[in-house]
Nucleic acid binder design. Sequence first.
DNA 1: GCAACTGGATGAAACGTTTTAGCCGCTATA
DNA 2: TATAGCGGCTAAAACGTTTCATCCAGTTGC
Lengths: 343, 343
Amino acid sequence: MAGASIKEVARHAGVSLGTVSNVLNRPDMVSPGTRQRVLDAIAELGYVRNDSARQLRAGQSRTIAIVVLDVTNPFFTDMVRGAERVVEATGAMLIVCNSGEDGARERRHLELLEEQRVRGVLITPVGDGPQPHLEKLIDRGIPVVLVDRGTGRASRCSVAVDDVLGGRLAMDHLLDQGHRRIAYVGGPLSIAQVAERHAGAAAALEDRGADAELRVAATTSLTVAAGRRAAEDLLALPARQRPTALFCANDLLALGVLQELTARGLRVPADIAIVGYDDIEFAAAAAVPLSSVRQPREQLGRTAAELLLEEAEHGEAHQHRHVVFQPELVVRRSSDQPRRARR
Amino acid sequence: MAGASIKEVARHAGVSLGTVSNVLNRPDMVSPGTRQRVLDAIAELGYVRNDSARQLRAGQSRTIAIVVLDVTNPFFTDMVRGAERVVEATGAMLIVCNSGEDGARERRHLELLEEQRVRGVLITPVGDGPQPHLEKLIDRGIPVVLVDRGTGRASRCSVAVDDVLGGRLAMDHLLDQGHRRIAYVGGPLSIAQVAERHAGAAAALEDRGADAELRVAATTSLTVAAGRRAAEDLLALPARQRPTALFCANDLLALGVLQELTARGLRVPADIAIVGYDDIEFAAAAAVPLSSVRQPREQLGRTAAELLLEEAEHGEAHQHRHVVFQPELVVRRSSDQPRRARR
DNA sequence: GCAACTGGATGAAACGTTTTAGCCGCTATA
DNA sequence: TATAGCGGCTAAAACGTTTCATCCAGTTGC
């Protein structure tokens, strides 16, 4: 009962092993009579196909992996949900791996996925340097789609949101509201998104030629806890240097900042305005509803999965594509209070 | 380059195929000289072990799966993080599957996992009825650990939090605050947790013999959107029948309820108090910081993974265990305002 | 009545590992 | 000097599929 093989099913049904395989894979190539006999045997023995053997023979698995930076960040889980639908519609299986923004774990995961000969990998890689492990996958012929990484390499598809534009939107809005001392809360800058959102903000400032300053309040990660620590640091500044507005690299940071600021008695947005990034579902439900730069989270995952499937199917003929979505600023109370321009 | 096998490595290094395998699996059984030659060949050919073949031979894979009800719910992703650590420490791989509270998807996932001969499954099953697919896994000898499902079956380990107690804690608190018209927001009741939290609340009411009522505001799922809809329904009630306090089956519901109530101009907790469940990180950062019944989320995952690994290792000798954690009420502003008892 | 097809089945090869039995040359033991 | 033991290696079997070349018994076409 525990582990019947196709061979035992064949014996049980009084047919050859190849016939059982045919029943499983091309049922109409076998006569109704024998087919039924085989199906009965399968049911009786509780036979379950052994995927390892099948894969070994096929040379390839039917799973697709998505490697995310932080499985507890709703931005990524929404993305996963988008990808999930597309992948499951094809009968394949999507497995989720969490790198936790740790390069070593990412590498380990990719090694295991390569050993498993997955059919493809969706990944938001840690850091932004050269990615030898990804190249290795690609060399082996495993399609890789970069998610939420703009820089379009020629060797792979990518799906991204224009982070520079997102940074601009946030910064323009804060400048419009009259803020002149603004801080960008985020880090490490080695994360491409973090750097690009900052670049966008800096560019907006530059373009306006406004007499304003944009400082960076560096964090070591993009979590609620890191946000709280960043807020503490900012509060340690002398009042006159303290920024009047914060642009946070993602919503988790923004929520952490918001929590700490209000805990310390500051009012948002009266004392300090906040704009986040991602527009996760919890942003709108925050203590002070959070302004945020919205990304099409599910669509990101969906599109990435579609590109991957297309590449997996068409192989050589496939043309790599780079899809870039536009972010959109959603203004809520956390930044919705104009202030007299001043320094 | 694309797909070198162990055989080619062997030829390249001028040794037999078995020796290469030994280098990979018991390096000290082979002399330093040959070992180095083999390692060089491996590097040169870019050889990567084929896991399918390895598994086929071993009869078992090195992956462990966790099947969650809702991958976008922070409660589950925190659990995943807990399990992840334990699993990865053993060199195995944790893959995350999302059933999305859909029985058919759950079944499909379990079928695929069974075909893959995973080493074990951590699962929070959809619904509470008999679970033939789980039984099937167990029959096949694949260890299954139930997560967050109290009812200790003899055939498997389980890890849970006492949901009845959690319901009691919430209800006692609301009664202490003087509430007499209380609604339980949650559903469907076919989900065990939903039912048990309600049972706890009802039991608390019973025990006190208080002249109070507990109605059920049924929802179709445990999401923020469902919470908003539930709030709409409650607001449609005539004012005198409207509950003065809500106990929500989880924090997502509570956040949705909170959002909708405040959008409609009601004050929380002055007009309506709210208590949630899970104490996810976002509860504390909500518009009105949310009282919630805290569950040890990461520990739940950690312990479940430990039980699973133990079972996978000891096989027959393994004794199934049922670990139950105690929840804890965290009172925040959303329910922190006593009211004169009245009807 | 014979050759040519055809639908339905069979048997064997192949996928890439791990493992086990066995071989070879050497050293230690009696 | 024979024997046992040992380190280092090889050869072959086995895991459970899928696929491909064959085969067989009918049926069709001439």
